[in-house]
Design a protein around this nucleic acid. Structure first.
Lengths: 225, 225
DNA sequence: AAGGGAGAGATTGTCGATAAAATGAAGTAC
DNA sequence: GTACTTCATTTTATCGACAATCTCTCCCTT
């Protein structure tokens, strides 16, 4: 009896600041808000129909997340994209992910194995039917890589990993399209999940490292023609 | 000519939201704001003499940092301390720090070696003259461990590391005092910096892992008598 | 051409009003 | 006595107007 008149997400415990955060995040990651773009409060108010106070709170959170740059008395901008920063980000991501992967492979139980199989199946489907840059593919990719490490046993390691993955996703989504890839991503994903299910930590780490590095090199070559 | 009448930090580009963030952070880490304590805006306004809007923005940032819990329509609280979470945190911290340490040892140049020597000297002094929990010791400790990994070559890895270190510091500062330690922290620190300067990555990683793990176990034994 | 404002425009912060939600205390039915 | 309502109180979240502060540009003086 309450499903008809719901002008905004009626999720329990949600505030306008939360909604603004989640929408801005989505739009920045998808490239809808361009890197370097100034985020003027007045404009955002019109765009999102949300008042200044919740918007400012959301922008502060996003600046802690690394998606937005806040400069005192000079407002907010979408964090710029920089090939060197993506290299840096990739290095950090590989470092964190390798450790998480080793821990997950060492400690994961049956539930984890099940989620790995499930995510691999959906990833294979997405690799066949869609391509990088689409919402569907990106979501499958996010879920796939997260499933591999989800049993690492540390919520904090996962939280850190998720943050880095989010930043990397923005780089990929914005840069993709101009990249004519010769890679077989389906094969790479399959190899990773095979190694994970075989509990071969060293191979899984090596493959994942290569997987992320290749993406980084690919985007680098696009940025510097 | 502007150093006399400065009621608030006159640092360029600083806003009240920044000041509120930094003060709240300091007070939470030092244990001045107790774990689990409710952070009512009205009360904080009186305490810090800052309006509601900048305070809310600061609290949102702190919630992204992990020091504050924000629950929609139920306000903000200082993140609680939980021995299990500290174990989790320590695991994540060790994972990140090991990778950063390996990278720094592999890539560090002369400047880095110099900063390691300098930080070790000051750490040794602090280990002799102060004890864990004091501002002086904690600052030396923070600088010491950061110096070891500062040449890792990834700003993002450092940023993540700093965030975890900050959270861990709060656990240590709040829990210390009740702990009657039998450790020789000076010796542990010396061993670490020796291994680092000898470019012995494996030993340095092993010693750092043990160093952090011992702290975690010590605090665990305090929490469950 | 360098330096120093003046002033326009943005950003940040304050305050009070109001809406929305959670809390807690009675009260009521069973 | 327990569980469920109701209702007043308190807390939180949001808005909108205004004030204060800062930034940046442009123009003027020297």
């Amino acid at each position: 009896m309450d499903a008809i008149l719901t002008p905004l997400e009626p999720e329990p415990g949600s505030t306008l600041a939360d909604i603004a955060w989640s929408r801005l995040k989505r739009d920045i990651i998808s490239g809808d808000r361009k890197p370097g773009e100034r985020l003027r409060i007045e404009r955002l108010r019109e765009l999102y129909g949300i008042g200044a106070s919740p918007l400012r709170e959301a922008l502060q959170r996003l600046s802690a997340d690394g998606l937005v740059i806040a400069e005192g008395n000079r407002g907010f901008t979408v964090a710029p994209l920089d090939p060197d920063e993506f290299r840096d980000l990739t290095r950090a991501r590989i470092a964190v992910e390798r450790e998480a992967l080793r821990l997950a492979i060492a400690q994961g139980g049956n539930d984890w194995e099940g989620s790995v199989v499930s995510a691999s199946y959906l990833m294979a489907k997405a690799d066949r039917e869609t391509s990088p840059g689409t919402d569907a593919w990106e979501q499958a990719n996010t879920t796939f890589h997260r499933a591999m490490v989800s049993a690492c046993g540390s919520q904090w390691l996962l939280r850190v990993r998720d943050g880095l993955q989010m930043l990397a996703e923005r780089y990929r989504r914005v840069s993709v399209g101009s990249a004519r890839s010769t890679r077989d991503l389906g094969a790479e994903h399959r190899a990773i999940s095979d190694a994970v299910l075989a509990r071969d930590a060293e191979t899984a780490c090596a493959l994942t490292t290569e997987h992320y590095s290749k993406t980084e090199e690919e985007l680098r070559s696009v940025a510097q023609p």
